[in-house]
Nucleic acid binder design. Structure first.
Lengths: 126, 126
DNA sequence: CTTAAATAATACCTCCAGGTATCATTTATG
DNA sequence: CATAAATGATACCTGGAGGTATTATTTAAG
């Protein structure tokens, strides 16, 4: 959708170039809309469009909507109060890792992905 | 078990100080033995002992036996041949993250954990 | 206004990693 | 030897994330 960010894409159209299950794709599109990453237009000729500038949507934004950001937030050993009461054995090392991941994900935007070409981030061959 | 590395610990004994399900613990101990991280002694008065010097067992070793090292090895976008045929959009950035994780896990040994004290890596309060 | 083409809401199903259950084997001890 | 206390092998079960099904709503166009 970033290829033409002003246009409206129907779920059907997106489906054709993505090879993930149609109904699941629909669910994700709705989720992304609810979370403000996409704008949806209902009714006939409706569809979805990217809601902001490409440069303002990061991989982290998307993951936080659609995926699972546990690695980024959890203590390595799973301690609930890690760093509040007492640090776990590798707290600092692991916090650095998490920060690294965070940096990469939050600094990589759709604009950047678009630049490197669709085939470098769209998986349509499984 | 690193607290006294020369001693034999029965699964029952380990169980008492760990609060994870007994049968699951047994399974893990067997797995760790099979993979050479523990030495097991069968029969009455049997048990387990750490198989090597504490400094030669890393978190990575343990995870590779008992856990799931996908994050460390997989392409961010899940491309199978990433970096062989063509790099994905964030290949280099993500490779750096993976290497960072690898560094931390492979350089953190049981010896180091032991130094920072059992309560900083043993989770017995869930 | 009716129809058809789209999205929205909600409830349900399925697969598999994480966890269990059962039985077999090994060995110290009296 | 028999027993009990330990580990080993193997097959099975289950909760919940990932995926599916069904029905409701919205809207352009003739």
């Amino acid at each position: 959708m970033a290829i033409d960010e002003k246009r409206l894409y129907s779920s059907n159209e997106v489906f054709k170039s993505l090879k993930i299950p149609f109904r699941y794709l629909r669910k994700l599109l709705i989720l992304l809309s609810k979370n403000g990453l996409l704008v949806s237009v209902q009714g006939k000729n409706g569809g979805y469009r990217i809601a902001k500038n490409l440069v303002d949507i990061s991989l982290l934004d998307i993951i936080q909507t659609v995926g699972d950001d546990q690695v980024i937030n959890k203590c390595f050993f799973g301690f609930e109060g890690c760093a509040f009461e007492k640090k776990c054995a590798i707290h600092d090392k692991w916090a650095a890792v998490r920060e690294h991941i965070n940096d990469v994900l939050s600094s990589t935007t759709l604009a950047e992905l678009k630049e490197s070409g669709p085939q470098s981030f769209i998986s349509n061959n499984n």
